[in-house]
């Protein structure tokens, strides 16, 4: 069984099919790219996969241990608790909070106390808070952000903000990660740093990653397999080399040949 199995997924907005009849599977520990021209439905697909939208038809299955879970029936926060996390195309950090607090919020499920434990600081409160603090710091060290722990997220340089968003998604305990244009707006140096960061965390934390990206150098360098969407339909899938030479992909990006 694949880690993620998308079966005949469709999402309509009125008369428009943003995602139409897409079926694909992602294996464990794979790094998969999702590409396509603007408006192809890539982000919509992510939004359906992470529960922001419900599918119009079809379903999404996720393998957790030996249980198969239907993600398309869960609200976003439950999907995250299953071990599926995402980043956003336009960075959505908790800007006014410190880097540390951003990560702590992602680790909120680790808190072992309820409302009364919090209000009166009884039960597991101190133990739990100390543990979260320690884990958050350890985690930041792992992703090389510990130096910036007390910095407000909005004051980080752009590349670091992207990096923090990925780190924060990982802090939820995710095993499957959706990255929505992680290299958008980056210069070549930043993209290069990001590429090695993604590779590094993938090996370190045994992750499965699906990423949307327009920067083809990044996609071709790190993706093992690529899926191509156009007008909501899956038009091709394969290794980077196969995709590069696929006539339908070239047509989708560059248009058809026209006889003059």
């Amino acid at each position: 069984m694949s880690l993620l199995q998308i079966e005949k997924l469709t999402r309509n907005f009125g008369g428009l099919s943003a995602v139409s009849n897409v079926s694909l599977a992602v294996e464990e520990h794979e790094l998969v790219g999702l590409i396509g021209p603007n408006g192809a439905g890539k982000t919509t697909l992510f939004n359906v996969l992470t529960g922001v939208y419900t599918p119009s038809s079809g379903r999404v299955m996720f393998q957790k241990g030996d249980k198969s879970i239907e993600l398309s029936k869960l609200p976003p926060y439950k999907i995250t608790r299953m071990g599926v996390a995402r980043t956003f195309q336009n960075i959505r950090l908790f800007k006014e909070l410190s880097v540390l607090d951003n990560v702590k919020i992602a680790m909120n499920h680790e808190a072992r106390y309820g409302l009364f434990g919090a209000l009166f600081r009884i039960g597991q409160y101190f133990k739990s808070e100390a543990l979260i603090e320690e884990k958050a710091h350890a985690f930041l060290k792992e992703v090389n952000l510990d130096e910036l722990a007390e910095t407000k997220a909005k004051n980080l340089p752009y590349g670091k903000q992207r990096q923090l968003e990925i780190a924060r998604a990982l802090a939820t305990g995710a095993k499957l990660l959706f990255l929505d244009e992680p290299a958008a707006g980056m210069n070549p140096q930043e993209t290069h740093a990001l590429t090695s960061f993604i590779k590094e965390i993938k090996e370190k934390m045994n992750l499965t990653i699906v990423l949307i990206e327009h920067d083809m150098s990044l996609v071709m360098e790190i993706c093992e397999r690529i899926f191509v969407l156009d007008y909501g339909k899956l038009i091709a899938s394969g290794t980077p080399d196969e995709i590069k030479n696929n006539p339908r992909v070239i047509e989708a990006y560059l248009g058809d040949e026209v006889e003059l």
């Binding site: 976003p76 926060y77 995402r86 956003f88 959505r92 908790f94 919020i105 992602a106 909120n108 939820t172």
Partner: peptide, 8 residues
């Protein structure tokens, strides 16, 4: 939206 995506 980000909060929800963090499992809140």
């Amino acid at each position: 939206i980000a909060a929800e995506a963090m499992g809140i």
